[in-house]
Design a protein around this nucleic acid. Structure first.
Length: 528
RNA sequence: CGGGCUGUAGCGCAGCUUGGUAGCGCGCUUCACUGGGGGUGAAGAGGUCGCAGGUUCAAAUCCUGUCAGCCCGACCA
């Protein structure tokens, strides 16, 4: 088809500009998300139900997340260690609420060997005396280990983290957001006093808030979970909640004050200064590969992924224009020098990450691949630019046609501030979106209207994006919470920490659902 | 785990009702022409129709089972 015909067709079929991702966010958000994951080359489904393959471009994001968080954990005095994948069944039985929470989604290993079944296949043999559970989380096995490590008040606090995979046999899975196996970190600490453990819990919550905001450019609300949303076995669960572009909430990290529940179940005791035996106070906290899903849903647009520079696998790609044989070598040489010069610059205290894409592909196609992957900057260098000692640059946070010529030296020296500007811009944009859809609500009617779509959806055209964060007073009545969950699929995402600048948060008032007095507003939303 | 839908080439799909051993678009390979935003033309490669049974002379097509994916529900830190 000729260019002209194509143009014509576009005009006839209309109005709607061509996007790299079909459908667009407005048309079908859930489908858009899946297409972005695929088009950005971040992950794919595997032969194993509910499990994903994380591809290099997606895994590199995880590595950057790991690196950033790990530094923050170390800076707050934690050390990494590794605990077994398998947990004896009997360990899991020790904390009643904990079992209730996880029993329905555990993978269980019952055999340790395979043997021929006589029909050309294999069957499990060598039944284990005690089944092993593949860890859905490690409180029990780490607790059992802590019990051995801790004897005296001098052994406290004990501050440990592990980077690991966990398995939860989920019935409904979505790449990055909820998979049967996922990667995460889980911090586990033990303290001599309740106060100290609570302080630790809140400190790590703050680490998560800072990381989400400063690194991922995802603005989050911090707060405490209501009882119905609490981690099984915890005394208090705190969380960070982000708002995605479809205005649903994503729980992006949790930090739990476990009281003495787990230390009693696992007998984590120490002799205090008065030689009295006491149970330790423990905490646990974690974030997972779900953060990558959060990145996509916070920043992606109808042309694909947009990577915040601080966690982007690469900051920029250089696309040499290599059409004419005569100039080919000179252009390549010029590009290679540019790569060197850029790598000598730094952003975020580390060398600039540069890709030079010399693949023999047509320019437009190559360019679009990088757009879909969300690389912050695309730089084209051809004979013309070389002559002018300049580069032709496109930013992922601007329209794909909006490109500018920049002098080479200026580009190199300005790269750090440019990336910083983009990182800041992404946070501001996400924050503006969240604030725009955060509403103070004081009546039940208004609340129901807020969370009711204009029309019902079906598979072809889902209900339009609606709702957001509703800030209402709440008396904490569990029955009212349950009813709202049933009728609207809306839950209390958290009771926000004071002083976050959330609208109307800290004035006392009346709960619109029960008429009871309430001291603070809570955040309601639909959630992932 | 319940209800619905879907599995046909790398991706997206048609064919299935009315059985007769596969087709389209994109992508891929090669060549030529092109070339600063998803090219043009020509010639090719690629599929035991998710898997396993059954019915039949004959199954992508009909039946049963099973696995996987999507949506809704239940469930879920």
């Amino acid at each position: 088809m000729s260019q002209q015909k194509k143009q014509q067709q576009k005009k006839q079929s209309g109005q709607k500009p061509k996007t790299a991702i079909v459908p667009t966010r407005d048309e079908n958000y859930a489908e858009w998300y899946q297409q972005v994951v695929r088009s950005a080359d971040m992950a794919e489904t595997s032969a194993v139900r509910g499990c994903m393959v994380i591809k290099p471009w997606g895994y590199a994001v995880w590595e950057n997340i790991q690196q950033g968080l790990d530094g923050m954990f170390k800076a707050t005095g934690h050390q990494n260690a590794y605990f077994p994948l398998f947990i004896p069944l009997s360990y899991l039985e020790k904390e009643a609420k904990h079992v209730d929470g996880f029993a329905k989604e555990c993978a269980v290993v019952t055999h340790h060997r395979l043997e021929a079944d006589g029909e050309g296949g294999l069957k499990p043999a060598g039944e284990l005396e005690e089944p092993l559970v593949v860890r859905p989380t490690s409180e029990m096995i780490i607790g059992a280990t802590f019990a051995k490590w801790i004897e005296s008040w001098r052994d406290l606090p004990l501050l440990v983290n592990q980077w690991a995979n966990v398995v939860r046999w989920e019935m409904r899975t979505r790449l990055f957001l909820r998979t049967a196996e996922f990667l995460w970190q889980e911090g586990h600490t033990a303290h001599a006093t309740s106060e100290e453990a609570i302080e630790e819990t809140l400190q790590m919550l703050e680490v998560y808030r800072e990381f989400a905001t400063e690194w991922l450019a995802i603005p989050v609300v911090t707060g405490e979970k209501t009882e119905s949303e609490r981690f099984p076995g915890a005394v208090n669960t705190y969380c960070i909640e982000g708002m995605m572009q479809d205005r649903k909430a994503l729980q992006a990290g949790t930090s739990h004050f476990l009281g003495q529940n787990f230390s009693k179940a696992q007998d984590i005791t120490f002799a205090d200064q008065n030689t009295e035996i006491q149970h330790a106070w423990t905490t646990s906290w974690g974030v997972s590969t779900r953060l990558i899903g959060g990145l996509i849903m916070t920043h992606g647009d109808d042309d694909g992924m947009i990577m915040p520079p601080r966690v982007a696998p690469a900051h920029l790609v250089i696309l040499p224009v290599l059409h004419k044989e005569e100039t080919r070598e000179a252009v390549l040489e010029y590009c290679e020098q540019l790569v060197k010069d850029l790598r000598a610059q730094s952003f975020d205290g580390k060398p600039i990450r540069v890709e030079l894409d010399t693949r023999d592909l047509r320019g437009g196609e190559k360019s679009w691949q990088w757009i879909k992957r969300g690389i912050p900057l695309r730089v084209e260098v051809g004979p013309r630019d070389m002559e002018n000692d300049a580069v032709f640059m496109g930013r992922r946070d601007r329209g794909h046609k909006e490109k500018t010529t920049v002098q080479r030296t200026e580009f190199i020296s300005g790269i750090e501030s440019l990336l910083t500007e983009m990182q800041d811009g992404m946070l501001q944009k996400a924050r503006a979106h969240r604030d725009e859809h955060t509403r103070i609500i004081d009546t039940k009617e208004e609340f129901y209207a807020f969370f009711t779509p204009e029309r019902e959806g079906d598979e072809q055209s889902p209900a339009p994006i609606h709702g957001g964060f509703a800030m209402t007073h709440f008396s904490g009545d569990e029955h009212a919470e349950e009813t709202i969950k049933k009728e609207l699929a809306v839950t209390v995402r958290c009771i926000p920490t004071a002083g976050q600048g959330l609208p109307g948060q800290d004035e006392p008032g009346t709960c619109p659902f029960t008429g009871q007095p309430s001291s603070t507003r809570v955040v309601w939303a639909k959630s992932y």
